[in-house]
Amino acid sequence: MLTLQLQEKTYSRTFSLRHIQLNVEKGQTMLLLGHNGAGKTTMIQAMFGLTPFNGYVSLHGEQLNLQSSAHISLLKKHVSYIPDDHALFDYLTPREYFQLLQLPHEQDVTREETFTNLFELSPYMDQPIAQLSHGNQKKTQIISQLLRPCDYYVFDEPTNGLDPDMMIILKKVLMKLRDQGAGILISTHHLSFGDTLYDHLMILRNGDVKLNMSRQETKETYPHQALEEIYKEVNRDYYMQVERLLNDLDTTRSS
């Protein structure tokens, strides 16, 4: 299991994350939802030691010291991280970039060909990344982290820049990885993308956990409701305010 135990992360007097435990289990998908600024990316960055926080990260039951290069190497060995931004060495081609990230004995030509064909990147493998479209740059980033089989895959907004075909394909790839035993963490704003994927659901608002349930618990609590309806129900106070503002539009128009 990959665990983030976040005791506290404070940005200001008005926003902080406190007492949150995030577990990613092998063979399951954890879906992390919330508005912009809810704390999703902060939690993911904390998991990789990219932002300071009070708490700890554990991998397979071992608590990690994120200041230790040996423990960071252990984390990188078992966990792939695909961030929201796709800062790449854009003077390289995708082929060169993949070769740079993979040690010679870890390269799997068949796996690379499979992913580049799946994501329709093959025609662009020898073009500089800087000359590729936003979508093909995103596909380059995703593939680069899928080339090496890992125990866990962490995606922060994986659908940004992908067209409908690629979102469908990515969803199928993630389901395949999960079925092969990998643990997956996905943070996304694309509710329909996450709806069929998740085994466990966490919803944040302004740093607070509004819901933290397994899929079975969610379906029992919110029977026959799609993820969008569950999300709105969990954030009922916010959406009541939205409805009042929408009603004000009718008043403004009639006047």
Score class of each variant (00 low, 15 high):
Q127I: 14
V234E: 08
L204S: 01
Y198F: 12
L162Q: 04
N160S: 15
L191I: 13
D237G: 11
A46P: 00
Q225I: 01
I129F: 06
I169N: 09
K76L: 12
Q141Y: 05
A70E: 08
L245T: 14
H189I: 14
L204W: 03
L59K: 02
L174V: 11
K219W: 12
Y152W: 06
Y81G: 04
S144L: 07
Q102N: 10
S68Q: 14
L201G: 07
T196H: 12
T29N: 01
N136S: 08
L227W: 04
E243W: 13
T218P: 04
Q137H: 10
K176F: 01
M213K: 04
H105G: 08
E62N: 15
P94W: 08
I143Q: 03
D237Q: 14
Q67L: 09
V242H: 11
K139H: 10
L75W: 05
N65C: 09
S187I: 08
T252H: 13
V173F: 05
I168C: 12
K172A: 15
L121H: 07
Q241Y: 13
V209W: 06
Y238A: 13
D165Y: 14
V109Q: 06
K40C: 03
Q137C: 03
A87I: 09
K172W: 10
I184W: 02
S73Q: 13
L101R: 01
E217D: 15
L6T: 02
H60G: 10
T252Y: 15
E243F: 12
D179L: 03
T196D: 14
H86F: 12
Y91S: 14
F98S: 00
L92N: 01
V109E: 12
M125R: 00
K26D: 03
A87G: 06
V57F: 05
H190G: 06
N212F: 00
T116N: 01
L2V: 04
I129C: 08
G194S: 03
E228Q: 13
T218M: 02
A70V: 00
I129N: 05
G61E: 05
S187F: 01
G39I: 02
L103F: 02
Q5L: 08
L6D: 00
K9W: 03
P128H: 10
Y238G: 09
T140M: 07
A130H: 07
H190N: 15
L74T: 05
V234Q: 08
N54D: 11
Y222K: 09
